[in-house]
């Protein structure tokens, strides 16, 4: 496949605009958020990519997906007190105590410590393969490909272990959250 020059990214965005918007609507559940993010995507695309892109279509979708992730992470940071900012398993409770101050209160620290403890306990229950791959990817910061190479397993085996780890952790934490 021919590599696309950076300026080709905007052209690809225009070509794929309908599909990208549709993805963003599906991903955020909101037309106006999707339009916001699409503008952001356009601005980022204009700024150009850091290197040649083999598949600009999939690159743009990944960028769009990452923009949503960044927003969610930002929201998560802002309201760390809320156990689950999506609200899906606890009902849509609004956060009554918005934390305006950025320095953590002692109560916040306590909650964070508790959260870390829960995560550690949940991680300890993972099957060994999933646990190792999770550590290498999330804690040591290796890419899937690097984890695969280092362990001598395929990339799809890494993905499988990661999927097991993520679903397993989420399930354990969700069950605890419901108690």
């Amino acid at each position: 496949m021919a590599e696309t020059p950076v300026q080709g990214l905007l052209a690809t965005l225009e070509e794929q605009r309908v599909a990208l918007r549709r993805f963003l609507v599906a991903r955020t559940g909101s037309e106006s958020d999707a339009d916001d993010l699409l503008s952001e995507l356009w601005i980022k695309s204009q700024a150009g990519a850091t290197g040649p892109i083999a598949n600009p279509g999939s690159y743009l979708f990944r960028m769009a997906n990452n923009l949503v992730l960044d927003r969610l992470r930002e929201a998560r940071r802002r309201s760390r007190r809320e156990r689950d900012w999506t609200g899906e398993f606890h009902g849509d409770q609004d956060l009554a105590l918005e934390i305006a101050d950025t320095s953590p209160t002692s109560e916040q620290l306590l909650i964070e410590r508790e959260e870390a403890r829960h995560l550690r306990e949940a991680i300890a229950q993972l099957p060994p393969g999933a646990q190792r791959v999770l550590k290498m990817h999330k804690i040591d910061g290796l890419s899937h490909a690097a984890v695969a190479e280092s362990l001598g397993i395929t990339k799809s085996a890494v993905e499988k272990h990661m999927a097991v780890a993520m679903a397993h952790l989420r399930r354990i934490l969700r069950d605890w959250g419901n108690d």
Binding site: T86, E115, I139
Partner: peptide, 22 residues
Amino acid sequence: GLCALDSDLDFHGKDLEAGFSN
């Protein structure tokens, strides 16, 4: 929900190392 979990894993990072016992 998985994005939230992912974000939490990143947030706590090295604090979680003791959980990897297995």
